[in-house]
Design a binder for these strands. Structure first.
Lengths: 197, 197, 197, 197
DNA sequence: GATGAATGAGCTTTCATTCAT
DNA sequence: AATGAATGAAAGCTCATTCAT
């Protein structure tokens, strides 16, 4: 089991390095040698772990979706109101955007923008389903409880994701007047106001 | 027709063709010969109108921002409530996303995703300021009227832009269960609920 | 008409240079930069003339088949016996193998050996049909005249081509005890003996 | 079973697998991992048996030449006329081309085509001498008997090998109108007509 | 202004071979 | 003897940009 474990660890380290480079410099501006350099390995060897650059990108989005999904799942499992859940989701999202900005940026600048890369195998948001599913659960629970208005899920999902993504984009543009985390309460309030019954 | 006029018309036709190609196929996947082909002109000649591919991309975002800005300005000048304005903005946005999807996609898939292209000269959203300014006017008017809650502008802007962009993205992914225009009322309602006093 | 002519001439010069390199060094051992170097042009520019290395190889076999076909056509049109035609075909074949050995070698070492290169578009000897057709005419004429025995064309074609190709191969291996042209009479005699009524 | 015996058996299994892959897919298109995969062994381990890919190719041609040589030797040792021997050689050649096509193809598509691979150590047909020697014996016997005309051996060898190889090539191209074995009599007759006194 | 051949740098990917385990 | 991760050198091909015509 040792060998496979080592291989899995290396795979993850490649994904981590690529995630940062893709997010910071763009998918097309990041070359395989760039990634190899960062990891101090040879470019050829990367292909022992991922069959192509596109394949690597696809594994990263699945991985990232999983990480974010897990954070939301934990919130979903808490015994708190939907209003409180919204606040916590916004908070964790912004926290991640501060601590691991590459994760959020990967959604915005790699996944969302380079459709041709994800065409084959990630259609219909299948590669981000782990993340989307948790938001769906959050929403359905709130509707069941009578806390959230019953509307098309995508109306709610688009609000959540677009809004949070939009804020992170604005942060990246350097136009926000203060730290993004200070926006948490305002934004959570807005989202709740939009979704409540 | 004067020389400069002819040149301006040709410039715009280049921008229109590039807009479509960049939006549909991605900035990096669109080559200068692709654009030239579509216009039945030579690749070299393009450089008589735009000094580089990046420069072309920057002019397009300014142009697009202007077109969208004008649409919103017209709404801003109407003597109607903020609630009604929101509905009209949503409506016009979705209408454009149906009729000229390349304009909206340019924001999502070109501008948002290829920061390195817009680094030099479009920092701080300066290239989309025409569009942003109109939304700022809409928001300030609403606050002045007492219709909208007084909050940080970017909280409102992120909501508006992120939400609408997010919905168009979901449409592009083919996950929406019905035509995007049927979402207009729901979404306008959500936005108004989020922004009202 | 000047431009197109110049382009056609350059195309042919590329084919000629490639023909030599492919024949002498093998298809897979010849790189695009090798060809470009020989022509003192850039590798990229080659792709303005041929869309791929395989495409280039295919155009060369068609071209070569045409050249050889023309030589045989001239013999076919002479008013001489089949026995005499055989002698002349053998003679011209060996002459070419001395003066332009790369043409014969291209058949033997590139076309015949790298099937995967010619798979798409040259199936069923379609790319050497000009050459094969002339041999077919030679054979049919001889049969009609009553000089040659009526047998399956491919029995005759295989004899002709295999035999001549085999001799050139032996020459290339350096095992022939004397100059290949000294074999002309023997070989023509053998072929005639095999094909006569 | 002794160590060396086990090693010899494994060597032969490697040669057999490589023979098939090289013949079917081409020498340069067959990778060492391809061979290893087919044998369910590791790429590195192959190098415990053959010092390089080229070396492997050279051992295969010697091996193949031996196998074919043996078949002809048996015919040579029979007490039958040269005419009959020709028929049997043609027959066995086509039979092998049906049952173990990779052996014949190895001559045509690997040995004949990739001279650079066999340059060092197989010059002057030394690696196929076993096969060539048997044909030489066949020919000399026939001449001694007064059955075959006395001519340069290579005139006869080129005929034999070129003709048979050519027919197998035509078969591979799919242009033969019927099964190759139906050509046996025609071709044997042609060869005999060419070689008899 | 218009053309498109030409360049040159750079990209992803492949693969024979080595070597630590 | 066996593994397979690792290397490094190359290959085919792409493309923004230039420039002679």
């Amino acid at each position: 089991m040792k060998k496979e474990e080592r291989k899995a660890i290396k795979k993850e380290s490649i994904m981590q390095a690529s995630l940062e480079l893709f997010s910071n410099n763009g998918f097309h501006k990041t070359t395989i040698p760039d990634i190899a350099n960062k990891l101090k390995m040879s470019a050829g060897n990367l292909y022992n772990y991922f069959s192509s650059k596109n394949m690597l990108a696809k594994e990263i989005i699945r991985y990232t979706s999983g990480v974010l999904g897990k954070e939301i799942r934990e919130i979903n499992m808490m015994d708190i109101s939907s209003e409180e859940k919204i606040k916590r989701i916004v908070k964790i999202y912004f926290k991640i955007s501060q601590e691991k900005p590459e994760m959020i940026d990967y959604f915005l600048r790699v996944y969302l923008a380079n459709r041709e890369v994800f065409n084959d195998g990630c259609e219909g948001m299948i590669c981000v389903s782990e993340f989307m599913t948790e938001l769906m659960i959050f929403f359905d629970d709130g509707v069941s409880n009578g806390e959230l208005r019953n509307q098309d899920f995508f109306s709610a999902f688009g609000l959540f994701m677009g809004y949070l993504g939009g804020m992170v984009f604005l942060k990246g543009e350097g136009v926000l007047t203060s730290n993004i985390e200070t926006y948490t309460d305002d934004i959570a309030r807005n989202i709740y106001a939009a979704l409540r019954v």
